[in-house]
């Protein structure tokens, strides 16, 4: 049974380590904030100028001057700090952000990522994505394994315009968990009920199944 978005987010949250500074992209990555494991203290960075992003406010407490990178109203947590956009991307570029989680349209088996443009159809801009993938120490992608037509999104080579090259370290898709290695996608975990055969059929890029591949605990 393929993972739903919440389950993908929950699995990614297991990668968080105590003391991490983390940037969560728009979409499934923002859900990771709801599954931070007990006893793991992380600081969420919002690229528009905040360390210490908190949950959404209670109704009536919305502050128009306090938004996240997705333009949603948020709150802060104790120990937070505000700063400008140059400092924000400075801390990203200088490797102070331990982990970035973002979505993808395509990932190639050497870790290229395409997540910002569909030529002629969707050209909204790259926002902070190119900076994040070029500089973050650790990059995890949350994505659907196939597109609505059932075609693989884990490819030998991306067909869409790239966001970054050779940068993705790990993918959590609705079907499993994959490390990017010199041999390509290395499947280390499978979603419950998903078989190796299904993974092989739905992964167009180079694929290796780990000897000790296990089931994702949902």
């Amino acid at each position: 049974m393929a993972l739903n978005k919440e389950q993908i987010a929950k699995r990614i949250a297991k990668e968080l380590k105590d003391g991490y500074y983390v940037n969560l992209g728009i979409g499934i990555p923002t859900l990771v904030a709801n599954y931070i494991p007990e006893g793991v203290n992380v600081v969420l960075q919002s690229e528009n100028g905040l360390l210490g992003m908190g949950p959404f406010p209670f109704e009536g407490d919305e502050d128009p001057d306090l938004i996240n990178a997705g333009k949603q109203t948020i709150t802060t947590v104790p120990g937070s700090a505000f700063f400008d956009s140059a400092m924000s991307f400075g801390m990203i570029r200088a490797g102070k952000v331990d982990l970035t989680v973002l979505g993808a349209m395509e990932v190639s088996d050497n870790g290229d990522i395409a997540n910002w443009k569909i030529p002629g159809k969707m050209v909204k801009g790259m926002g902070g994505a190119m900076d994040l993938v070029a500089s973050a120490k650790n990059i995890i992608v949350a994505m659907q394994h196939t597109n609505p037509k059932g075609e693989s999104k884990l490819l030998p080579k991306c067909t869409l315009p790239l966001t970054g090259v050779g940068c993705v370290k790990k993918i959590v898709s609705d079907l499993g968990v994959f490390d990017i290695t010199p041999e390509g996608f290395r499947c280390i975990e499978l979603a419950p009920g998903v078989t190796v055969e299904e993974i092989k059929a739905k992964t167009a890029g180079r694929l290796v199944i780990a000897d000790n591949v296990k089931e994702i605990a949902v």
């Binding site: 959404f56 109704e59 919305e62 938004i67 949603q72 109203t73």
Partner: peptide, 11 residues
């Protein structure tokens, strides 16, 4: 001071 995405959580 328009808000683009008014997101809230329940009390």
């Amino acid at each position: 001071k328009r808000i683009e995405q008014r997101t809230v959580r329940k009390r």
